[in-house]
C-alpha cells in the first residue's frame, strides 16, 4: 500500500499534470480520476481524448489544462488514433532510443467507449497495440446534457429516459477480457490510490491494457458536489460496481470488493440509490430488478473465480 506522505514528495506523483483553473465542474469524479492516472503515468505520456467531457474541461485556446501532449479526437477514432501514434513511435524509436519510455493513453468517456468507440477499441485490442485505454464511466453523455448511454444503469433518469432506463448496463470490462488482452481492471474514483496502483501496474505491462473507472458526476447523477467520493464508495460497498483485475486471464478481486463475494457483506443498493436524484422516481419493483441484476453479476464472478482456482 502506498503512503500519501511519500507520494507528495515523489518526483513523479507529487507533480500535477492537470492544472488548476480548468473548466471541469466542481466535484468532478472524472477529473479526480484523470489527476491520479497522470500521477501514475508521469510526464512522458501522450493522451488521446475522443469526444467527451475531457475535450471541454481542458479549457479555452490558447491555454490548456493538461501539462502533457493532449490530442482531441473524433468520437469513434480514439483507439484507432492510438494505434497510429504507437506505429509512429515505433518507427521513431529506431532513430531515437530515448523515446522508448513514452506511454500512449486513450482517455475516453463511456459514450466513446461503450457505444461509439467500441469498434476502434476492439480493433486495437485485436491488433495488440501497446497502449493503455482508460474509460471513465459517468454513466451517460454528460457533456451534451445527460443523454442515455450503454453505461447507464437500469432505472436511472436521463433526459432521453425520463421515466427511467429499461435496459441494464453493458459489461465492457468483460468484453475486453474476452479479447484475451494482458490486463483488464476496474477502478472507482472514490478509491484514488487503488486506481493509482492499477495504472502503475498497467504501465509496466506490454500490450493492450484496459481500465474501466467509475466516475461519479454531480450534475448528471443529481447529488451535492461534496458527496462525490461518498457516492463512489457506496457504489463499491453495495456491489453495484465491482473492483477487480484480470491479469493474463487470471481474475482477482481487489481493494474493498475482496470481502463482498458473500451477499451478507454487501450493503443493500438502496443506500447507493437514495444518495442520487437520478433514481428519485424509481419504483420499489425496479429496485428489486436492479438488486437482482447486481446479485447476478456477483454470482457470475463467483463461478469464474471458482473455475480458475
Amino acid at each position: 500500500m502506498v503512503k500519501l506522505k511519500e507520494l507528495i514528495k515523489d518526483p513523479v506523483a507529487g507533480e500535477e499534470y492537470f492544472l488548476k483553473g480548468n473548466s471541469s465542474c466542481a466535484g468532478c469524479g472524472g477529473e479526480l480520476a484523470f489527476r491520479w492516472i497522470m500521477k501514475a503515468l508521469g510526464k512522458r505520456t501522450i493522451v488521446v481524448a475522443p469526444a467527451s467531457c475531457f475535450n471541454v474541461t481542458i479549457g479555452l485556446y490558447p491555454r490548456a489544462g493538461p501539462a502533457i501532449p493532449y490530442l482531441n479526437m473524433a468520437f469513434a477514432a480514439g483507439a484507432a488514433t492510438c494505434s497510429g501514434i504507437v506505429a509512429g513511435l515505433a518507427a521513431r524509436k529506431k532513430l531515437d532510443p530515448s523515446m522508448e519510455d513514452i506511454t500512449v493513453l486513450c482517455f475516453a468517456g463511456d459514450g466513446g467507449t461503450i457505444d461509439i468507440g467500441i469498434q476502434g477499441l476492439s480493433g486495437a485490442a485485436e491488433r495488440g497495440t501497446d497502449f493503455i485505454y482508460i474509460c471513465y464511466d459517468n454513466e451517460a453523455y454528460m457533456n451534451t446534457g445527460t443523454q442515455r448511454s450503454g453505461g447507464t444503469p437500469f432505472g436511472a433518469w436521463t433526459t432521453t429516459t425520463p421515466t427511467g432506463k429499461k435496459e441494464h448496463k453493458k459489461n465492457v470490462p468483460m468484453i475486453m477480457a474476452a479479447h484475451g488482452i494482458p490486463y483488464v481492471a476496474t477502478a472507482c474514483a472514490g478509491y484514488p490510490l487503488d486506481l493509482y496502483q492499477k495504472v502503475l501496474k498497467a504501465k509496466k505491462i506490454k500490450g493492450t491494457k484496459y481500465i474501466h473507472v467509475l466516475a461519479p458526476c454531480a450534475p448528471g447523477w443529481r447529488f451535492p458536489t461534496e458527496q462525490a467520493i461518498e457516492v463512489g464508495r457506496k457504489a463499491v460497498q453495495t456491489g453495484m460496481w465491482i473492483l477487480y483485475e484480470i491479469e493474463d486471464g487470471k481474475m482477482t478481486l481487489s481493494g474493498p470488493s475482496k470481502n463482498l463475494l458473500d451477499k451478507k457483506n454487501r450493503k443493500p443498493i438502496e443506500e447507493y440509490i437514495k444518495l442520487q436524484g437520478r433514481f428519485r422516481n424509481i419504483s420499489p419493483e425496479d429496485v428489486k430488478v436492479l438488486q437482482k441484476w447486481v446479485d447476478r453479476q456477483w454470482e457470475d464472478l463467483k463461478i469464474r473465480l471458482a473455475c480458475q482456482s
Binding site: N22, S23, G59, L60, Y61, R63, G65
Partner: peptide
C-alpha cells in the same frame, strides 16, 4: 496549439 497553463478558464 494550446499551451499548458493555470486558469485555462
Amino acid at each position: 496549439l494550446s499551451l499548458p497553463n493555470y486558469g485555462s478558464l
